[in-house]
Amino acid sequence: MQHFSLDAAHMFAGGMVLVSFMMLYQDRILGLINVFAAHAVVLTLSVSWQAYIQDAPHLYITAAIAFGLKAIGIPWALHRMVVRLGIHREIETVGGIGPTMLMGIVLVALSMVVMLPAAAEADPIAREDLALALSVILLGLLMMVTRQNAVSQIIGFMSLENGLILAATGAKGMPLVVEISVAFSVLVAFIVIGVFLFRIRERFDTVDTQALDDFREGRE
């Protein structure tokens, strides 16, 4: 049972890393939103599994929040937003897909190298969970850095947040309050960014952040 629970926990966490790579690869915006929903579903599964093996019922609440907000609520809202903004076109990446994927692989390797010795004394579930969670966080950051479209930057940010929750639930004894507050901060960030998106579009007729920079440089 011990081995099985460990393997299953690793499978779910590893699945999140895999889905993060899918996000890096996906360059259409609607597809990206769907992959993000899948990311949240895998997170839900992972958190529920942790709740089961750690015998921590409050983690089910975290899982429910993750599922309700991130797998259904936010993707749905993003869908509507994208449709209303009218951006179905292809999103451009900086530096191309191939190098980005390669870089992502390097980041995963780096987080393994860092976390496995650093958390050597922690129990195996927490240790590898932490390593995979750090990979998810780094991949989310990489996504924010490489994309120009504001919507995909938001998605990168939220996948980063998913990585944080993965890390938090992997460690035993994290109080529920922390998870709920993280979830709500994501929600607030989402709302704020959503409002800004519309404001930006109103002014510049695009949500490409390059336009913002062009405007700022033009003014100087």
Binding site: L107, V113, V114, L141, M144, T209
Partner: peptide
Amino acid sequence: QFLTIRSYLSLVFAALVALLFLVATWA
């Protein structure tokens, strides 16, 4: 003072990766 938002993010990202790299090689 006059970089784009993405450049700032990249700087943060690069700093983070560099620090992680340092930790990895130090240990």
